[in-house]
C-alpha cells in the first residue's frame, strides 16, 4: 500500500514539473485566471472594494473549474503518444496514474488561488478574507471534482481532438450558466432551472457565500457532499475505464457509465428545485455589490 502512495507521489512531482514547462498549461492555469481577476475587479467592479469579494469568488470558481482541463487532458496525450504503455510495464497502476492527475493539478492550482487573494487585497483593497476554512475546503474539493470530471471525459473519448471538443462544450456550459460570468439572478428562469443541476453553480454559490457572508462549513454541507460524491464516482469510473493503449477504443457503454457521475447533482438539483434556497442566496450575494452601486446613483 505504501508503494502505491510512493508511486502516486513520484508521478505527481514529475507531472507538476512537466506542467510547469508547458506554456499552454501556465497560460490557462495562471495567466488567464489573473486576467479574469483584473477584468472583473477592475472593470466590472469599477475598483470598488465592496464588490471585490463577490467578484473574487467568481474568479476563484473559474480557477477551480479550470481543473476540468488541467492535467486530465495530458493523460489523453500520454495515451495517444504511447507514453502510458511504457508505464504499464512498471508497477504503476491506473489509480496511481489518475490520482497523480488530481494531485498535481491541485498543487498547481493553490498558488494561483493565493495570488488571487493577494492581489484582491493589495491592488483592489478587499477588506476581509471571507471564511478561510470554508473557502479552502471548497477550493480543495472543487478542484478534485472538476479534475475528476475531466478524467471522465478523457476516459470516454478516443482522440485528443474529441476530448477538446467535448471539453469545450461542457466548459462553456459551466462558464456561462453557473453564475461564474453572468450573475445567477440575471439568467432567464429557464436557464436557472437547468443551472441548478450543474456542479459549477454550487461551486460559485458556495464560494460567494463563504466570501461575502463568511458562511461556515456546516451550512455548505450539501454542496460539499455533492461535489465530493461526484468526484468519488467520477474517479472510480475513470479508473474502471482507464485505457493504456493508444489503439484501444472506449467501449460504447462507457459513455453511459460516465453519466453516473452526474447523479449527485441530479439529486441536489431536484432537491434545490423543490425546496432550495440557491436563488435567494444568489440574490443576496449579488446585492452585496448592487446596494452601494445604486446608492452612488441616487447620490448623483
Amino acid at each position: 500500500m505504501s508503494r502505491v502512495f510512493g508511486n502516486t507521489w513520484a508521478l505527481t512531482m514529475s507531472r507538476m514539473r512537466l506542467a510547469m514547462r508547458n506554456r499552454a498549461f501556465l497560460f490557462f492555469s495562471l495567466i488567464m485566471p489573473l486576467a479574469f481577476l483584473f477584468i472583473y475587479a477592475g472593470i466590472f467592479g469599477r475598483g470598488r472594494a465592496q464588490a471585490v469579494p463577490y467578484l473574487l469568488a467568481e474568479v476563484l470558481a473559474l480557477t477551480v473549474m479550470g481543473s476540468f482541463w488541467g492535467l486530465s487532458v495530458q493523460l489523453v496525450t500520454f495515451r495517444e503518444q504511447g507514453i502510458l504503455r511504457r508505464f504499464r510495464v512498471t508497477p504503476v497502476g491506473a489509480s496511481a496514474m489518475l490520482a497523480s492527475s488530481l494531485l498535481s493539478n491541485y498543487f498547481l492550482t493553490l498558488p494561483t488561488i493565493a495570488i488571487e487573494f493577494f492581489l484582491s487585497r493589495s491592488v483592489f483593497h478587499m477588506a476581509g478574507l471571507g471564511n478561510v476554512l470554508s473557502i479552502f475546503v471548497l477550493v480543495t474539493i472543487g478542484t478534485v471534482t472538476f479534475a475528476s470530471l475531466g478524467l471522465i471525459v478523457a476516459s470516454v473519448t478516443n482522440t485528443m481532438q474529441e476530448t477538446q471538443i467535448i471539453n469545450q462544450i461542457i466548459w462553456f456550459v459551466f462558464l456561462f450558466i453557473s453564475g461564474a460570468t453572468i450573475p445567477f439572478p440575471m439568467l432567464p428562469g429557464a436557464v436557472q432551472a437547468v443551472a441548478v443541476f450543474l456542479p459549477a453553480t454550487y461551486l460559485v454559490s458556495g464560494l460567494q457565500r463563504a466570501m461575502i457572508d463568511h458562511t461556515t462549513l456546516p451550512y455548505l454541507g450539501m454542496y460539499l457532499a455533492s461535489l465530493g460524491g461526484c468526484a468519488l464516482i467520477a474517479f472510480v469510473i475513470s479508473a474502471q475505464l482507464f485505457r493504456w493503449e493508444p489503439e484501444s477504443k472506449a467501449p460504447r457503454q462507457a459513455k453511459l457509465w460516465a453519466a453516473a457521475a452526474v447523479i449527485p447533482f441530479l439529486l441536489l438539483g431536484i432537491w434545490e428545485t423543490v425546496n432550495g434556497d440557491l436563488r435567494s442566496h444568489a440574490m443576496k450575494n449579488l446585492n452585496s455589490i448592487r446596494e452601494p452601486y445604486t446608492m452612488e446613483r441616487i447620490e448623483r
Partner: peptide, 8 residues
C-alpha cells in the same frame, strides 16, 4: 517504440 513526454 518507447515514448516519453517531450519535456522530461
Amino acid at each position: 517504440a518507447t515514448a516519453l513526454p517531450d519535456k522530461m
